[in-house]
């Protein structure tokens, strides 16, 4: 990403892969990118890419007949961001996620960072839409009670435009959602059902951009967020759980480390003070047993725990249950 103008080449910088189909004036026709918490490639498929190249080309040709170039902005690249320039050592390779590291790092340094700043590129599931991996405009599921359900969308519908923009991909849908207001918002949607074009409106309630911990869990932007648990480790597999008599449907992990290094060492000291030790098997935190991964645990802790409170951590130590009270620090 060194030297790349992130204002022109704008995408979800938490991703490990993104391709933008663009007009040379900087207009982004389509965004082939996006993932969810299940897998980095959950929304990457050759079929979807073919669709972007084929149909996106038509959108490019149509746009070229009456272009509306975007306003010129002063270029900004990650290597020029103050937070990055202040690092003692510059990376050999600037990764996509470094853009968010630097953007949010600058905001934190200025004291202007708000948690909601990290609610970027909402997953379509946040408006109630689960989309097909290959035909990414095809609705495979509508979440009950969601804005999409209330708008009357159904499985099998094919999205055509969202907020007035032509959409071909999961990334296109995310781009429209990202550009929409975080408060109460109404987004028009045009879709195909049984060959007929239909119109609807997604009416989004205030706060709709805030993801659930699970939806947010894959993002590297979670790591600098507080509060931090101060410990982590590896999940137990089914055999390990069976051996310890832990319900197979419950999430459990063995503490592999307390954070004892760097600027967050205070969180590890706090966990040690509470009584936690490396090797303990965590069977619940705050009564929560339905987490799905370590990423989910770390996102859940950061998004749900209140600084100043305490949370109960239940562990098995040498097979015996123990309960600790962990103070949640800022």
């Amino acid at each position: 990403m060194k030297g790349v103008d992130v204002r022109t080449f704008h995408f979800d910088f938490d991703l490990t892969f993104a391709a933008l189909l663009m007009h040379p004036d900087g207009t982004i026709h389509h965004t082939y990118a996006g993932r969810d918490w299940t897998d980095p490639q959950s929304h990457l498929s050759v079929g979807a890419f073919v669709d972007v190249l084929r149909r996106g080309r038509l959108d490019h040709d149509a746009y070229a007949k009456s272009p509306r170039p975007p306003k010129r902005q002063k270029p900004l690249s990650v290597d020029q961001m103050p937070w990055m320039k202040r690092r003692p050592k510059q990376p050999d390779c600037y990764h996509c996620h470094n853009v968010n590291d630097a953007r949010f790092g600058d905001a934190r340094d200025r004291g202007t960072f708000k948690r909601r700043d990290a609610w970027t590129w909402p997953d379509p599931v946040q408006v109630g839409l689960r989309l097909d991996k290959t035909i990414q405009t095809s609705v495979v599921e509508v979440v009950k009670g969601s804005a999409a359900a209330k708008a009357g969308l159904q499985p099998g519908d094919r999205l055509r435009t969202l907020g007035g923009a032509s959409v071909l991909t999961f990334g296109d849908v995310q781009r429209v959602l990202d550009a929409s207001a975080a408060g109460a918002e109404t987004i028009p949607v045009v879709f195909l059902r049984d060959g007929a074009t239909k119109n609807a409106r997604l009416r989004l309630a205030k706060g709709w951009k805030q993801p659930t911990p699970l939806v947010f869990s894959w993002r590297s932007t979670k790591w600098p967020m507080a509060p931090k648990p101060g410990f982590g480790g590896r999940p137990l597999d089914a055999a390990q759980k069976r051996k310890l008599g832990i319900d197979k449907s419950h999430f459990a992990f063995r503490i592999g480390y307390l954070v004892t290094w760097g600027e967050n060492a205070y969180t590890g000291r706090n966990a040690a003070k509470a009584g936690l030790r490396k090797g303990d098997v965590v069977v619940s935190v705050g009564g929560k047993t339905d987490l799905t991964s370590m990423n989910h645990f770390h996102a859940w802790f950061r998004l749900t725990q209140k600084p100043g409170s305490t949370v109960v951590v239940k562990v098995l130590r040498n097979g015996k249950p123990k309960t600790f009270k962990l103070s949640v620090l800022k």
Partner: peptide, 21 residues
């Protein structure tokens, strides 16, 4: 070079596929 890519695309009327990974 993204600038070269933009210049070439502008000349030819082709779109750019900008890939980041």
């Amino acid at each position: 070079d993204l600038d070269v890519a933009r210049a070439k695309a502008r000349e030819s009327g082709r779109p750019i596929l900008a890939v980041f990974r």
